[in-house]
C-alpha cells in the first residue's frame, strides 16, 4: 500500500467536515474522489497531502507518517495540485513551471531541470506560452501552467510517487481535459499513484481505477467504477435522479442526470413536429 489513511476525522469548530474516513491506494492506481458540494473532498485531499495534519491523524505514506519524512525527500515523492491558485504571480510562465524543480537545485537550475520543464510544458500544451507573463493568461491556461509545474516536480528516478489533484479540469476545454487525464494515467501506469478530485462523473468513470464517493464527510461508497456508478448509488449521493448507460465509444459507465417530473418543453415540441 502506498498511502493508507486510518479513520481520519476533521472538525471546523463543532462542525464535522470528515468523519472517520478510511482510504488506501496502491501503486499504479488512479483513485478518483467524487461527491456533492461540501462533502469534504478538498479537505480530505488536503489531509492526504500533508496539509494541517496533526500527529494524531493516522496517515501513512509508504508506511511512514509524513512527519518522519524530510521536506526535500517528500517533495521528490509527492506533489499536489491545489484548487485555489493564486491569480497574481508576477513571473513568466516558464519561471512558474520551474518552481516544480525547486526541490532539485540550489541556486541555479541544471540542464536536466530545464529539459524537464520543457517536456512538461509541451505535454500540457503551454510551451508556446512559456515567455508570456503568467498574469496575462486565461483561467484555463493558468490551470495548465500549474499542472505542468506539478508534473515537473515528480520527474525523477524515485519509484511509487504520489500525485494529488484537486479539480484539475476546471476551466479546461474537452480536449485539454482528456489530455490531462491521459497524462495522469500515463503517470500512474509507471508504478505511481494519483488521487484526483473530480466533478465530471463520466471522466471519473473512464479514468479511475478506484472511486471514492464522499457524502457529508463520510465514505458513501468505495470501489471500482463499475461498482460505484450505478443509478442507485449516484442518485442517492447527489440527491438527483440519473440513469447509467454504457458509453458507446469507451464502453465505460456513462451517467446522465435528468428530472422526469418536469417535462422539457423543447422535447415536447420535437415529438410533435
Amino acid at each position: 500500500m502506498m498511502l493508507v489513511a486510518n479513520k481520519i476525522s476533521r472538525f471546523h469548530r463543532s462542525f464535522q467536515i470528515l468523519n472517520e474516513v478510511e482510504i488506501s491506494i496502491k501503486a499504479g492506481e488512479t483513485l478518483v474522489i467524487i461527491g456533492p458540494n461540501g462533502a469534504g473532498k478538498s479537505t480530505l485531499l488536503g489531509m492526504l497531502s500533508n496539509e494541517n495534519i496533526s500527529d494524531k491523524d493516522e496517515i501513512y505514506f509508504k508506511d511512514r507518517k509524513f512527519s518522519t519524512w524530510c521536506a526535500k525527500e517528500l517533495a521528490h515523492n509527492k506533489a499536489k495540485f491545489s484548487q485555489e491558485n493564486n491569480s497574481d504571480i508576477g513571473l513568466l510562465v516558464k519561471d512558474v513551471v520551474l518552481m516544480g524543480r525547486y526541490p532539485y537545485f540550489n541556486a541555479s537550475p541544471h540542464q536536466e531541470d530545464l529539459d524537464v520543464i520543457e517536456e512538461m510544458m509541451k505535454k500540457t500544451d503551454i510551451y508556446k506560452l512559456r515567455n508570456r507573463h503568467y498574469n496575462s493568461l486565461s483561467g484555463g491556461e493558468k490551470q495548465r501552467v500549474h499542472l505542468s509545474r506539478v508534473l515537473a516536480q515528480l520527474q525523477n528516478d524515485e519509484t511509487s510517487k504520489l500525485a494529488l489533484f484537486d479539480e484539475p479540469l476546471n476551466n479546461l476545454d474537452v480536449r485539454h481535459q482528456y489530455n490531462i487525464m491521459e497524462t495522469i494515467r500515463e503517470f500512474t501506469q509507471k508504478g505511481n499513484a494519483a488521487i484526483v478530485v473530480l466533478h465530471d462523473l463520466n471522466l471519473a468513470a473512464e479514468f479511475a481505477d478506484k472511486v471514492l464517493l464522499l457524502k457529508k464527510g463520510k465514505v458513501a461508497a468505495f470501489g471500482t467504477p463499475e461498482h460505484i456508478f450505478t443509478e442507485k448509488v449516484i442518485a442517492a449521493a447527489y440527491n438527483f435522479p440519473c440513469a447509467v448507460f454504457k458509453n458507446p465509444i469507451t464502453q465505460c459507465p456513462m451517467i446522465v442526470f435528468g428530472n422526469q417530473t418536469k417535462n422539457c418543453n423543447r422535447c415536447v415540441i420535437d415529438t410533435e413536429s
Binding site: G46, K72, A75, H76, S82, N86, D88, M99, P103
Partner: peptide, 14 residues
C-alpha cells in the same frame, strides 16, 4: 517565489 503560489503549495515544494 514559491510562496507566491500560496503557503500550502510552497510547502508541497519542500
Amino acid at each position: 517565489n514559491a510562496m507566491m503560489l500560496g503557503e500550502e503549495d510552497a510547502t508541497h515544494l519542500g
